[in-house]
Simulated assay, not measured.
Amino acid sequence: MHHTRLFDSYICLDPSMWWDNQALLKETKRALETRRFHGTSLYLGIANTADEGMDVTRVLTDTTTATLHMRSALQLQRYFEHNQQNGLKYRGKYYQDDSHMSVPFIAEYEALRFLFGAERK
């Protein structure tokens, strides 16, 4: 959000949007609503960091610190999906079967395919 002209493409893997009382999440929301990102692409990969037995619906309605990391990343995904007027070429995916440590392997591969057009039709 701070240096948007450094690159044309970005990969964001299971970001810590919860940090500092969600400061970066709030800043990102404002930027997505007010700024333009034409010519910029971003891929967001979200890991399943919830306790066993918690599904996405329960995570989103939970208010404990145990789900804050995942809840914040899912909120970020929702901001990207609901602010398409800003011109950002965006794709995100929640990886239900991957943890914070394993998600980079699969998400980086899928991000590169998205960013460089190597996806199968």
Rank of each mutant, 00 (worst) to 15 (best):
I11W: 02
K26F: 06
K121W: 08
G87L: 02
Q75M: 04
T61F: 00
T4D: 09
D8G: 13
N21K: 13
T28Q: 01
M17G: 07
M54L: 13
L68Y: 08
A107L: 07
D97A: 09
Y43L: 04
K26R: 10
Y94H: 11
K26A: 11
D51P: 00
D98M: 05
M54R: 10
E33R: 08
E108S: 10
I46Y: 01
E119N: 12
D97Q: 11
L42M: 15
L68P: 03
M54D: 02
A23I: 10
S9H: 11
V59R: 05
G39D: 09
E52Q: 03
Q96W: 01
T40K: 15
M70V: 06
L112D: 00
M101I: 02
V59M: 05
F116I: 07
D97T: 15
S9N: 14
F7P: 12
Q85I: 00
E108Y: 09
Y90D: 05
D62V: 03
M1R: 05
N83H: 15
M70I: 09
Y109K: 13
F7Y: 15
G39F: 07
E33A: 14
Q22K: 13
Q96T: 13
N48Q: 06
A73Y: 05
L76G: 02
K29E: 14
W19E: 08
S102D: 04
S102A: 12
I106E: 01
R36K: 12
T28S: 07
A66G: 02
A47Q: 02
L24K: 10
Q77N: 14
K93Y: 03
A23S: 11
T61I: 04
M101S: 13
A66C: 05
T65C: 00
Y79R: 13
R30A: 14
Y109Q: 04
A111G: 14
T28G: 08
A73F: 02
K93Q: 13
E33H: 06
Y79N: 10
S16Y: 08
L13P: 09
N86E: 04
Y79S: 05
L88P: 00
H82L: 14
C12W: 09
A111F: 04
E33I: 09
